[in-house]
Design a protein around this nucleic acid. Structure first.
Lengths: 182, 182
DNA sequence: AAATTTTGTCAACATACGTTGACATGAGAC
DNA sequence: GTCTCATGTCAACGTATGTTGACAAAATTT
């Protein structure tokens, strides 16, 4: 492994942490570089600029083979999202999607990559006419719960154990998956 | 009505539109002033600065007496959120909450005001030990659905009529309200 | 050992932001 | 009409951002 690849990796990991916590516009390259212990100018050298770093981070985060390849991707998601040990990691990705999806500078890019790398493969595997609304509602529940628990921090969902939160989430997800279009 | 009140009002409305579309950090005072047809400097004069304008906008948006005073506020919310004519207005508020709740500069302020003006009064009216988790899940569903439909724009929830979207939302909300803590 | 490529450092740039203060313009009171 | 206060306009400020290019240091090759 070349030395430049190490710096690239350090930058990518710092960028992932940063973009999962705050939106693209709120994150500065100097913040990322500082946390990575690397000079700011190297971002432009190795990733071609801020946008390139963001895109590299997207490709890294959305690369989730076990999800895209599963015949029942929703079950995989349920397993991951309601597992105490992996909660934080997956929820921070959710946060990243929500926060940056609303950012005018990278929103479109995020939507395109999200569909290409996760949504469309999942829909293909699930099959059936009801797949799209079910998956949409599934994601809505996952997303909303994550926002309420981690960002809004409302009573009843924040001041609760991970297990209880998992039960709440499951309840919503079951409802999403039993939906029948009228 | 004094002339300065008119300018104040124009600024407040432009700010509401802006902060409902993008986060605090992404919105610039020059954007708001331009849309209001007013000089930038007047923001600092009349609201004491950007943060003051944001706070005034919060107080305006969260002032929702019929919601806070109802004995069954959730029913009020369901009625509002699934009503085609009022969908956009209410959903833009949802968007504002999500987007700015994740902003490090105004997130805490937003959380405090949200609880003071909406959540806590609703919980008091609802009563019962199960009120908090039920309301939290209710909001999670509302929030998640709005994000998926308007921000992420996923197939199955975006390419669908307002009525069908209302049906999906209702289905999730019913699930949220029937939750029984273990 | 010398030459060459890779990798890192530093200073500067153009730009955009929020904020401030001085000044001009308007309307209402005496 | 004149004075006074409210209202609006404008230019400038300090600061922070992303990006660039020149240069130094280190590693690799010849």
């Amino acid at each position: 492994m070349k030395k430049s690849d190490i710096t690239r990796e350090k930058l990518l990991q710092a960028a992932t942490r940063a973009f999962c916590a705050q939106s693209y516009s709120n994150v500065t390259l100097r913040m990322i570089a500082k946390e990575a212990g690397v000079d700011v100018a190297l971002v432009s050298r190795y990733f071609g600029g801020k946008l390139g770093l963001f895109e590299a981070m997207l490709a890294c985060v959305f690369d989730w083979p076990e999800m895209a390849a599963s015949t029942d991707p929703v079950a995989v998601a349920i397993a991951k999202y309601t597992q105490p040990e992996t909660e934080d990691a997956h929820m921070s990705v959710i946060r990243m999607i929500v926060v940056n999806g609303a950012d005018p500078e990278v929103g479109d890019l995020l939507r395109v990559r999200l569909r290409e790398m996760l949504i469309d493969p999942m829909l293909e595997r699930m099959g059936g006419a009801e797949a799209a609304p079910k998956l949409a509602m599934f994601i809505a529940a996952t997303l909303g719960a994550a926002m309420v628990r981690h960002t809004l921090r409302l009573p009843g969902m924040t001041d609760v154990s991970v297990d209880e939160y998992g039960a709440q989430l499951r309840h919503m997800l079951d409802a999403a998956l039993t939906y029948e279009q009228t």
